[in-house]
Amino acid sequence: MKKAIIITENSYPEGDAGAVRQHAFAKMLSDMDYEVLVIGYGKSTEEKICVYDNINYISYRVNSLNKIYRVWNRIRFGDKVFDYISQNYKQLDLLLVVDLMPSAFKKIVQLKKKYNCTLIHDSVEWYSKEEFRYGKLDLAYRRKEFTNTKVIDEMWNVVAISTFLEKHFQKFANRVVRIPVIMDIKNIEYRTKVEPSDKIVFSYAGGPGKKDFLREIISGFALLNQTELHKVELNIIGVNKDQLINMCEVDKKAIAKLGDCLKIHGRVERSVAINYIRQSDYSLLIRDENLRYAKAGFPTKIVESLACGTPPLCNYSSDLELYLKDRQNSIIANGHTSKDVCEAVKNALCIVKEKDRAFMRKNARELALNCFDYSVYKDLLFTVCDE
């Protein structure tokens, strides 16, 4: 049996959106008759093999109160991965690598030469300086620049999450395919039935940083008149009120105007956040479509919403225009300003019949199954696995 290892610094198996994607790749490779191991940085397994959904994995995170030791352990991630593979594998056919420190990438290249295995890089983002307080000086920004411009060459095959990244890596890599956000959609609980209600429920769930324009979302709702406000409920999940004001720069007056229709829930478990989205009429996501991060990435929040049967209210960014159709499976804002949000919300409020909203929910779920279930992309992944 062929052997494949996925290497990621994400919180595999359940810690973040990246881990969900890596698990989808692990399941695809397993279906392709690879023996798969995921080496990640989720909850500590004390460097022992554990099993999640029939996939073997190890986490190199350590349980320690000593911050210096934790940082040192993170820096040594590449060395520990190299040592483990060298000591436990006589044969290795494929390495699928997400994003690592520069020193760790050097170890990956050494493994490539040692085993003559296929190297695949899963590229999912390219930051914009506007996301960070110190712009281009931010360490995360510099690491991503290094990966996307210095690491990948003809030795690598690349899975790109967006057309933007696909076109970029076609200049350097051996083979490139585009695979958007993927999940095990069939096993995600969904809702298509719409019950009569005097409120249309909109929800945002996530940790926005500066990527998601919560300021524009909340200010957009605040532009509604009182009659319109009485028809809506706005849930914000993942940040508290202080963070909205201080981190997201939301106007206090906008928060005050929304009054009881604004529900701020703070940070919750991922499963709870997804349930809020499932029970909502629309999810919310607004980004600056002109910035590089929005072109290069692909919003996991949109796919999670579609999988739940919840149409997103969003503007077009990344490759969303390839999938989302206004008033069919989504509500599309014309841009990323507060006025754009307000007009999109008004358009959503015009869809008053339960059967019309149920039609959109059904379309959203079908789109998720047809375009974002991992099983759809097995043949495409095979083209970069086989040298």
Rank of each mutant, 00 (worst) to 15 (best):
C50W: 07
A104R: 09
K80I: 00
T118V: 15
H121F: 06
K113N: 15
K129L: 01
I68D: 11
R142Q: 12
N54A: 11
F82L: 11
L100S: 09
R133L: 00
Y89I: 00
K114E: 08
S59V: 12
D99T: 14
F105P: 01
D122Y: 04
S128M: 03
V124T: 12
I58D: 01
L65Y: 08
Q91M: 15
I85C: 12
S128E: 03
R70G: 00
E125T: 09
F132K: 01
N54P: 00
F77Q: 06
K136S: 04
D83A: 15
N66F: 15
G78A: 00
S59T: 12
L96W: 09
F77M: 05
V97A: 10
Y52M: 09
N63G: 03
L100C: 14
L139K: 15
V124P: 01
I75A: 00
I108H: 03
L95Q: 05
N116G: 09
A140D: 12
V81Q: 07
Y69I: 03
L96H: 08
R61T: 12
K67E: 07
V62E: 07
Y60G: 07
Q110W: 01
V51T: 08
S86P: 06
E125R: 03
N116K: 12
I120M: 07
S103K: 14
L100G: 09
E130H: 05
C50A: 13
Y89H: 14
V81I: 09
H121M: 08
R70E: 04
I120N: 04
S128K: 01
L119W: 04
W126G: 01
H121G: 07
T118F: 00
G135Y: 02
V62Y: 03
E125S: 05
S59F: 08
N66R: 13
K114L: 15
A104I: 05
A140P: 01
R70Y: 03
K129M: 06
V97W: 04
K114W: 14
Y52E: 10
Y57L: 10
D93Q: 02
K90L: 13
K114C: 00
K136Q: 05
A104E: 09
